[in-house]
Amino acid sequence: MSLQPIQDPGLPTHVHRKADTDPKAAKRAEQQVALLFLTSALGTILFIFSYVGIPQDQLIFLPILGTTNAHQLFLGLGLAISLFFIGMGAVHWAKTLMPDHEVVDVRKEQRSKDEDRAAFVATIKEQGATAGLGRRTLIKRTLGLSLGLAGLSPLLMLRDCSAELPGDELAQTNWRAGTRLLTDPGDRPIKPGDLEVGAVAQVLPLLPAGRKRTLNDIAKDALLLIRIRPEEFNLDTERLSWTYQGIIAFSKICSHMGCAVALYEQSTKHLLCPCHQSTFDVTRAAKVIFGPAARPLPQLPISVDSEGYLVASAPFNEAVGPSYWERDSE
């Protein structure tokens, strides 16, 4: 420790509190503590009354909060008062009436004394030698082997966490050539005429009869249908042939992290993802124009069937949703 420019004046002298010297002040403090504890008791009574006495659907109007549920509010306030004031009482008690002399305790270095350390090393060595740890290498090695192997079994047992392996499932959806587009919700087939220019529709595929739609299906099948004026498209001939009379269909599952991309701005023809603000240009096949997404939204080729309803003319030609290692993105 370097020399201090000013020497340690030591602990400041203890200043007595009012309650230490004035019995009246002490009495007052005692009464205050008691009052705090009594307030807590009142809180509990309010809690019990609210639980049994206030109907669960009782509403009450209060400024700032507005119309709120009286049962929940007074139950909570009762609990809050009952707990809070126990604490306040205890602390006030400790501060005003319990001894407030600061105490000094000595601190020792964490390190053990040298002789203790030496004794420890000696013990280890001695015990190790008696057990023959140094000599019996066969035992050591086989023990290591069996412990290592035993550790494998719980790992192996995690295998059935998933009955199936990904395979190419992540690249599959329920869209096939000829699958009808249905409104979501409502499950009604859609004709091109149902969509005005500037209109959107949330769409799911018609599943084979008897198959119930699950969330797993929706997580990959969800589709957004947008109609603009055909001359506004800025697409190559192939992609243009995937549209139908100005109607274009994109996977609604974001190519970034899988949120539902559905904020369509009719005025700018931009699609925005609300999770991370990737912005896609509908007229250029959902090209990314802002944000973290690195790939356009997959486009589904559509046309109409013999009855005039919109159908997929082919499956998606790439995996929908967020990227993964085996995804062929080229």
């Binding site: 420790m1 602990l11 609990l79 809050a80 008062i81 009952s82 707990l83 809070f84 004031f85 126990i86 604490g87 306040m88 009482g89 205890a90 602390v91 008690w93 400790a94 501060k95 319990m98 001894p99 407030d100 600061e102 105490v103 000094v104 305790d105 000595v106 601190r107």
Partner: peptide
Amino acid sequence: EKNVVGYPLLPVYMAKAGGFFFIVFG
């Protein structure tokens, strides 16, 4: 560095810490 100055666990610190639990909960 060689000492620690404060209040003993019983009763002051216990009352304060215990009371503070109720305050936080409340």
